[in-house]
Simulated assay, not measured.
Amino acid sequence: MATLDFIVIGLFALALIGIIIWVLKQKQNNSADYFLGGRDATWLAIGASIFASNIGSEHLIGLAGAGASSGMAMAHWEIQGWMILILGWVFVPFYTRSMVYTMPEFLERRYNPQSRTILSFISLISYVLTKVAVTVYAGGLVFQQVFGIKELWGIDFFWIAAIGLVLLTALYTIVGGMKSVLYTSVLQTPILLLGSLIILVLGFKALGGWDEMMTACKSVVVNDYGDTMTQLIRDNRDPQYPWLGALIGSSIIGFWYWCT
C-alpha cells in the first residue's frame, strides 16, 4: 500500500470515530430513540442505512465471485430487492400503526411471549449463519489482502481483522443504537458506491470492454441444456438455478428479507 492509501483509510477511520462520538453524546430517552434513531432521521439517512446495511463485502467479494463462476442466474436473489417497495407502502404503515419496532415484538402482541422468543432465536441464528458470517469472512480477507499482513503476534491476521470488525461494529451499534447505524451508513454509502464504480471501470478495462465480456460469457455453457452464463432464465432442469425454483425461492426469501 502507498502512503496515499494509508491517508485515505486513516481519514475514513477518523470520520467514523467522529460520527460515533457525536452519536454517543446524543440523549436517548426511550426504546423508540434507541431502535428508531429518535424518529427524526431524514430520508437520506434512512436510504443510506438501508443501502449500507444490505451492501457489503459479501456482495463486492462473495456475490461478485459467485456471479463470475455461475453466471447471471445468480442475480435472481438480488432482483427481489424491489420488494422494499412493499415494505414502504404496506408493512411500514402497518408496523407504525401497531407501535412495534421489531417483528418478534409484533408476534408477542399478536400471540404470546413464546412466539417472540422463538422468532428471535431463529432470526439471530439464521442471520449469523447466512449473512454475518459471510460478511465477516469477506471483510477479514479484504483487510488481509489490502494490508498484506499474513501474521501478527503469531496469529493469522485474517482472524484479527475479522474479530476486530465484529467487536467494533457491535460496540458502536449496541452503545449508540439505530442512530449510530444511520449516520455511519451516511458515510459508508458514497464510499461503497464510488468504490464499486471504480472496480467496475477497472474490470471492464482489464477485460477489454463490455462486448469482450459478453462474448466470453456467452461461450461458456453452464449445463447440458445449452444455457450460457449470460442467461438469467435457465432451463427448469438446471441443477443449480431452475427458473421456476429460482423464481419462487428468491421471492419467498426476498419477502422475508425485505419486509419482515
Rank of each mutant, 00 (worst) to 15 (best):
N54D: 14
C217S: 13
T228Q: 04
I7Q: 04
L193Q: 00
I199V: 13
I84F: 13
G47F: 01
P190N: 02
I199F: 15
K25C: 11
E78D: 12
I160Q: 08
S70T: 13
M72E: 06
V222C: 02
Q28C: 05
N29E: 14
S219G: 15
C259D: 05
L187E: 07
G148H: 05
A170H: 09
S98L: 13
R116M: 09
G81R: 06
I19T: 09
G81K: 06
D211S: 15
Y95R: 07
S69K: 14
N54R: 07
A133G: 01
G62W: 10
G177T: 06
L192F: 04
I233D: 06
E108Q: 14
L182V: 04
L107E: 00
E108L: 03
I155Q: 10
S31Y: 09
F204M: 01
P242T: 05
L187G: 03
L247M: 11
G47K: 01
Q188N: 08
G245S: 04
W43Y: 08
R110E: 07
T260Q: 14
I198S: 13
F12V: 08
G18N: 05
L165W: 02
S126Q: 11
V23P: 06
I79K: 09
I248K: 04
S180R: 01
V220C: 08
G140S: 00
I125G: 07
I198K: 12
I191N: 09
L200A: 14
V23R: 03
Q80F: 12
V221R: 10
G139K: 10
Y127N: 14
I9N: 00
I79Q: 07
E78H: 15
L152V: 10
F51A: 06
T96L: 08
E78W: 13
L63W: 15
T184K: 07
Y101I: 00
M1W: 07
N54K: 05
A170Q: 08
R110Q: 10
E212L: 03
F6D: 09
A170Y: 11
I61P: 00
A75H: 07
W77M: 12
G38H: 02
P104M: 05
W43V: 12
F12Y: 14
V132M: 14
N112V: 05
W210R: 14
R97T: 13
I253K: 12
F91A: 04
V222N: 04
I233G: 05
F157G: 01
V181C: 05
A216C: 00
V136A: 08
T189S: 13
V186C: 05
S250T: 11
W258P: 02
L152W: 14
L244C: 07
G71R: 04
R116V: 06
I163R: 01
I46C: 11
Y34V: 10
S53A: 12
G38K: 09
W258Y: 06
V175M: 13
D235V: 02
Y225P: 00
L36H: 07
A52D: 04
K205M: 15
G139I: 01
